[in-house]
Amino acid sequence: MTAMTLGEIQRPDARRAPLGRLLRSELRMVLRRPRTLILVGLLALVPVIAGIGIWIAADASANSGNSVDEGLAGLVDGNGLLLPVFALVIGLNMLLPLTGAMLAADALAGEAASGTMRTLLLAPVSRSRLLAVKAFGVATVTLFVVALMAFTGTIAGVILLGGDGMMTMSGTTLPLGEALGRILLTVLLVTVQVWALAAVALAVSAWTEHPLIVVVVALGVVILSGVLSAIPALDWLDPVLMTTSWMGIPEVIRDPLPTGTLTEGVLRAACYIVIGYSLALSRMLSRDG
């Protein structure tokens, strides 16, 4: 062990590490966590598996001559550019919320449990900055995962199911460029919805040291709002339920684009994001490190 010498300090007056450096370091860490990698890999496979499933089913139904199918799934056959949209809608049922919840759980509760949050606070990274870095990590990885699903979905869709342009639910055909625009729009809309859930999960994550609790609570929120929206007597609750926006996502493949519904979904998500992050920040400021 050698003695350390003074004078190695390079930025003696700096009170904060450069933000970009912190964000890069956070992303590098999150993307090296085995749990994250497994989930990312699984999600990237979802569109491919869905595509193969539809491809096989289409063959079977072509033989039986019966292809009447409700909803999105029935439109995807022979219409490969719809596969990414379909896969994201499927993913939003469970896997993507799970991903958002897990990322949020690891971000604060997990770091608190392993003691790594303490070392960061001592560096020091201020509490509000730490939350910002964590929120950035969750948000970026979410966007990455959703975009990855759309990417594998588009590739798998074009290869397995083919199709020229995108046939919309309204029975019109969009040229390739516009179709890719719709896919990108779906990516953004789905990402914002996952962000909303992740924000709520992050608030829970700031309150506990047990990542599992965060995942359970977040999925509980999803299931509960699903149940509430299924009860006709509680229809008046629908406009405030997170899942209402999720169910509106397939609207993205209607033509013309029903901007009203989609904007409302984004605004609703924004409300949840504001609530989630302010609660998380509040707890971060007061919690013991």
């Binding site: 605004l267 924004a270 409300c271 509040s282």
Partner: peptide, 15 residues
């Protein structure tokens, strides 16, 4: 906490 939650809830109610 109060300000953020109030903002979000008001937003949801407006929606």
């Amino acid at each position: 906490a109060a300000a953020g939650t109030a903002t979000g809830v008001v937003g949801l109610i407006l929606l």
